[in-house]
Write a protein that binds this DNA or RNA. Structure first.
Lengths: 195, 195
DNA sequence: GTCTATACATCGATAGAC
DNA sequence: GTCTATCGATGTATAGAC
C-alpha cells in the first residue's frame, strides 16, 4: 500500500533527523542542539521538523528512547558465561564501556541535565527494562535486597561519571571496573542487616 | 583610600550578584540562569553585569570557586575523631550530605553539564585542595594508591549523583553511605595488585 | 509534507552616551 | 559604573502556497 511506503519514508526521515541530532549533541552539547542547525543537516527547513516531532522536548524523548534501545540491543543478545559473579563482572564491563562511549547519551540517560525534560512513560519503560536486567543478574548471585541494586548502580554510575567528567577519552576510571566489582562482590550483607 | 572603598563596594555587589545567581540556579537550573533575570534581582540592567563579570562563563567560574570555598569552609574546621577508618566514614557522611544539599552546586562542581565551561586554574586549585584533603585521610588509613582515591571519589560521586537524579529530596542513596564505606574499607588491595 | 514568510519572546554580548 | 539602544542568534509557532 502507498500509505506503508509513506510511513516508511516518514520513519526513515525521522531516523535521519535523530542521527543528525546525536551528531550535533556530540559537537555542541546536548542542550546546544539548535533546530535550525538540525534542519540544515538533513536538508530541511526548521518548521518542517514539526512534521516529525511536536517539540524540542519530544525530540529529546525520542533520543532517550533510541538510546535505551541501543543499549538493550547491545546487551540483551549477550551470552554471559560463568558463575553469576562472573556474569556481573562481564555486565559491568560492557555497561561502563557502552556508557562512556557517548557522552551526550550518558548525560541524557543518567543525569538530569536538561531543564524541563522528563522521559515519557513509554521511554521510561525502556529504562526500566534495562534496570530489570541488572536486577535479575544481581539476584542470581544472591544480591536480592533493593539496597544491593542501588549500591550497584551508584558504583557503576560513579565510575562512568568520573570517567567522563575528569578523564574524557581516557580509561582512568574504566580501568577500575574490575576492582570495583571485586569490592562489590566481596561485600556481603552488613552485620546490622534486615535479616 | 577612596579606591579601597570603591573596591570594597565592587566586591560587595559581586557577592550580591553571586547570591542571586545561586537563587536563580535553584529555581531554573544551572543553565537556566538568564543575565536579565539575574540583573533584575540586584536592581541592575543586564549590560551592567559586564562590569563585574566578563562573560556568563566567567560568572559560572566565580560560582565554581565560591562553591568550593564553601565546601572547604565547612569541612576544614571539622575535628574528626576516632580511627582513620572512622574519620573516613565521618568525612563521607559530611561530604555526601553537603553535596546533595544544593543540586545546582553539585552539578557545577562534579559534572560536565555546562557546554563550554572549564574552571580557571585558580578555581581548579580550590578543587584540588579539597581533593588533597580526601587523599590525606585515605592515606592515613592505608589507602595510598592513586586508584584508592579514584575508587573512593567514584563511589561517593555515584551515591550523590543517583540521589539527585533518581530521588531528589529523599535519602534513598544517602542511607547507603554507611554500607558503601563498610564495603570500601573491607576491600583490601586486590590479589593481582601492583605490589 | 515541505516550503516561504513572518511573528514573538528570549538570549548573550557590544557600542557609546552620561 | 550604569544606562539606553541595538545586534545577531535562538526556540516556538502560525499562515498559506504548492
Amino acid at each position: 500500500m502507498v500509505t506503508d511506503r509513506r510511513a516508511a519514508r516518514h520513519e526513515a526521515t525521522k531516523l535521519r533527523i535523530l542521527a543528525a541530532a546525536w551528531e550535533l549533541a556530540a559537537e555542541q552539547g546536548l542542550a546546544g542542539i539548535s533546530l535550525r542547525d538540525l534542519a540544515a543537516r538533513v536538508d530541511l527547513r526548521q518548521p518542517s521538523l514539526y512534521s516529525y516531532f511536536d517539540s524540542k522536548l519530544a525530540l529529546y524523548d525520542a533520543m532517550f528512547a533510541q538510546a535505551y534501545e541501543q543499549l538493550l540491543a547491545a546487551v540483551e543478545p549477550l551470552e554471559l558465561t560463568g558463575s553469576p559473579e562472573e556474569q556481573i563482572r562481564q555486565m559491568a564491563y560492557v555497561f561502563t564501556r557502552l556508557a562512556v562511549a557517548d557522552v551526550p547519551r550518558a548525560q541524557l540517560l543518567f543525569q538530569r541535565t536538561l531543564p524541563g525534560f522528563e522521559p515519557s512513560p513509554e521511554s521510561y519503560a525502556l529504562a526500566n527494562r534495562f534496570l530489570d536486567r541488572t536486577r535479575r543478574h544481581l539476584a542470581a548471585a544472591g544480591f536480592t535486597r533493593p539496597e544491593d541494586l542501588d549500591l550497584y548502580t551508584a558504583l557503576m554510575g560513579g565510575l562512568v561519571n568520573q570517567q567522563m567528567a575528569n578523564d574524557p577519552g581516557g580509561t582512568r576510571w574504566l580501568d577500575l571496573v574490575d576492582e570495583a566489582i571485586d569490592m562489590y562482590l566481596e561485600h556481603s550483607v552488613p552485620k546490622g542487616g534486615t535479616l
